[in-house]
Design a protein around this nucleic acid. Sequence first.
DNA 1: CTGAAAGCGCTTACAG
DNA 2: CTGAAAGCGCTTACAG
Lengths: 349, 349
Amino acid sequence: MVTIKDVAREAGVSVATVSRALNGSASVTAQTRRRIAGVAARLRYVPHGAARSLVTRRTQTVGALLPDLFGEFFSELIRGVDVAARARGLQLLVSSSHGDAFEAATALRAMQGRVDGLLIMSPHVDAGFLREHLAPSVPAVLMNTSVSGKHYATLNIDNYGGAHAMTRHLLDRGYRDIAFITGPADNFDAAERLRGFRAAAKSARTQLLRGDFSEESGYRVGKQLVAAKQRPQAVFAANDMMAIGCLFALIEAGLRVPQDIALAGFDDIPIARYVNPPLTTVRVSIAALGQGALEQLVARIDAPDAPPRARTLDCEIVSRASSGLAAGPYQSLHQRPKSRKHHSSGEIS
Amino acid sequence: MVTIKDVAREAGVSVATVSRALNGSASVTAQTRRRIAGVAARLRYVPHGAARSLVTRRTQTVGALLPDLFGEFFSELIRGVDVAARARGLQLLVSSSHGDAFEAATALRAMQGRVDGLLIMSPHVDAGFLREHLAPSVPAVLMNTSVSGKHYATLNIDNYGGAHAMTRHLLDRGYRDIAFITGPADNFDAAERLRGFRAAAKSARTQLLRGDFSEESGYRVGKQLVAAKQRPQAVFAANDMMAIGCLFALIEAGLRVPQDIALAGFDDIPIARYVNPPLTTVRVSIAALGQGALEQLVARIDAPDAPPRARTLDCEIVSRASSGLAAGPYQSLHQRPKSRKHHSSGEIS
DNA sequence: CTGAAAGCGCTTACAG
DNA sequence: CTGAAAGCGCTTACAG
């Protein structure tokens, strides 16, 4: 391994000068700097990150604690974080799939001391958990959390507003009898979406059907609806996967969407526009969530003593055929309003 | 910040003893160990990762250099890596979206010295690039690469075998006139898939149509096919996105799939089973790719001087309605059919 | 079984 | 502008 000593010896200067030259300190002759840079390049010198971190107290790394890495949502989230991190020269340490609070705590502790700050999104993380496992000195931003923004920086999707707007959208299209498929009872997003639906649907006939965010649960609810004596005019599912499961059940039973029953979801996952009919849904800019969270974290690292901010990201209604819009012309994934790239194993061109 | 000194003082022992107790060294009384563990917990002591890395020469971190983090493929890949890494107590540093070789080189250098080993998948990375930017002392595993396994550990998907098996599948179903939609000319996966098709289709009538892995290119090829005087009996696209683009063009023109023309893709992206008719395709276990790569890397870290291995992962044919299978009952994403496995080259060297 | 001390590779006041 | 030296927090031979 090549160290700063080797460079110093080779360039005929002290290690202090090498350090200053390579870190762009002003007090080095242009000539000396050039010579040192040349030697460093020739020797393929790469500074030892751990040694530097030990003395600077900075790792140039941020950690992301996520419930999962898989699926549309997390992959876009992490990419948003990655892009914003790269723009600031920060590395990204990820950790996910913590089945329980103990695993989440282990991951959280393992990250402390290796990162300058933490992005946290986890169902296991509440105020008590943080008090127990997160050192107060570690800057952190909580995402999609019910934890109060009083003591921690937070960034939430406007689940309430999105569900409210979608409910109004359905009401505006004339649907007066609307069923809502709920998400898991203990899920913060699900609760907020339900709250938004309830607030907007006060004047309508409503019913709640229990789901758990899975496609299967949507399918089961769809079967129930098919068997019911009186069907609602529209179904609003708390996420797209349930809406799609429900859609399959309705179509299997020979019902027409939206003529017999309208349908809407939440998330705008890519499959939403591929199903038949394409699904009306609420779009969340997930990349913006990731990017915004990283920027909030950087601000917090730079000014740890500033009061934490509680931010909320807007949603957008995407109206497609499942709520009554006429089918449009063919559009590829790449021509969507907000274009997103899709990679498969082959697309590593 | 709480350091090992604080724990030592509080427990009335030397820092050496604290270190030994906390790291599970045998030569510490159970009683001393207990006392120290108690003090450490009370003080919420977390060892400083950088300091430890500096002396142990281990970071307990592996880096993953990927072309992107977004989409089905990478999200599943990274999860496979993450799960395997967690099982071994390793952290995961990710870096992606390098537009050119310079960015990839920057990312590669930034990771060196912060990780114990590297997982590399990048279109910019070839033998020359590695010679230039990767220190020979850094253990690495290359994925989906054309770089020879002589000098580097590699892990590839069996693109050749998968394409070969799919072509045979189409031949077995009686299609004798098969068109192949190619991927980008300079893409390794695309070239291998083409090679597999050619080898298996020797006895059939074939034609090649140029695509670039994008949905649009598949759509364009579909339009060409519709306009052609004589159509092939089946189309095999080098990836699913092109197959889906092609499918839309065919359906738009009023052709029936598979009655008028059969269709197959490669990758088994989730959308493949949602389109109408569901798409016959080649499935790659991407999570297994990520997991396998991490395990190869760990082996390399543990035995840097062992000769590098070149491994290949099998693919699996997933037969759905687009190649003539009758539509089955409703199945959710999570209940995807286990279809027959084909066994090909398996492990080389 | 435990402690004193050296040292990992770097940065940064402090002198000059 | 440059160098000698201290020190970041930890681990680990080396003594005892």
